[in-house]
Design a protein around this nucleic acid. Sequence first.
DNA 1: TGACTTAGGAACTGATCGGTCCATAATGTT
DNA 2: AACATTATGGACCGATCAGTTCCTAAGTCA
Lengths: 176, 176
Amino acid sequence: MEVFQTRGYEGTSLIDLLEGTGLSRGSLYKAFSDKRTLFLAALDRYTTENMENLRQALTQGHPREAIRSALLAIAKASAFTLGERGCLVVGSTTEMVSKDAEVKKHIKQTFSRMQGFLREAIVRGQAEGEISIGHSADALSRFLLCTIEGMGVLGKTGRTEKEMSEIVEVALQALR
Amino acid sequence: MEVFQTRGYEGTSLIDLLEGTGLSRGSLYKAFSDKRTLFLAALDRYTTENMENLRQALTQGHPREAIRSALLAIAKASAFTLGERGCLVVGSTTEMVSKDAEVKKHIKQTFSRMQGFLREAIVRGQAEGEISIGHSADALSRFLLCTIEGMGVLGKTGRTEKEMSEIVEVALQALR
DNA sequence: TGACTTAGGAACTGATCGGTCCATAATGTT
DNA sequence: AACATTATGGACCGATCAGTTCCTAAGTCA
């Protein structure tokens, strides 16, 4: 998973994968039928883990604060962990969506689910009067998704956690 | 340029490049010393063209409206032109920044310049009272840059122009 | 027209790609 | 201890990779 994050799909050779896993060719090919299958498994694990984090953060406490803390967690991750490594979803989107129908489907589903979680929190926030009803929950959640993916790109160029957090604070202003 | 946009750097083979240019190996290698040099030239042309567009849009009319129209133009492009093709800067960022120091430098410079243009417009807007001074021009411009790059990612999954435009409208709320 | 220069194209290079095979080593199981 | 099963790693495969060579065709200029 981490190797694909840093090097991309095409940029990752079998040898990179062997070094990354510590396995030899034979062992790796007994576990996964081919490179693409391994990538799909990595992508699946990545999205599952991260979406669960997002879901949990978004369902704890008041909607507005929940969104803030969820986005701040991603901001932090984008600045450091992902920084050099990069978000696997962003990478897969730019590199593979136009070539691999299955990856495209997976990514679209991931985005749709993420937006769904965000939308739920926004709907609650709008009901409680915490969040503006000037735009639909759909538009606001799509905007937040855009901010998240944008941070994934920007983070790769070595931003500090403070810089990334400020982006979140500005974005939250749009929900007022 | 377009071939690299759609297929990424590693994903583009010489043959793809020959088909894209209509040249044969000999001719292509007489024009560019190697694949990477050609890529660098494509990246340079791409950023030059797009930055000039951005700069012009941002210096026409009132700051707030200038920002709106600049972002709407990018939203439109992200939905269609770039849609299947993808933004070359976003692609290069995710794929090459961690591998190629020169590309990294180029991308950082591009981001820095783009943010500079945005910041100028924001500073003017803040002076005229059109744009909030609740956040620094630096933070606001970084946020807008994040929105732009986010649209580049989201656009690849086939969004309509309307969806992308809404993102811009929400983002503009953050400047209020 | 003839000398010179540039562009084009096909055959070829070594290296590396993803993927297979198989003998052997390690591990259970009884 | 004997046997069955699985994990391992290295040799190997054809295909494709980026890049080179070189001969020919097309211009260019006098």
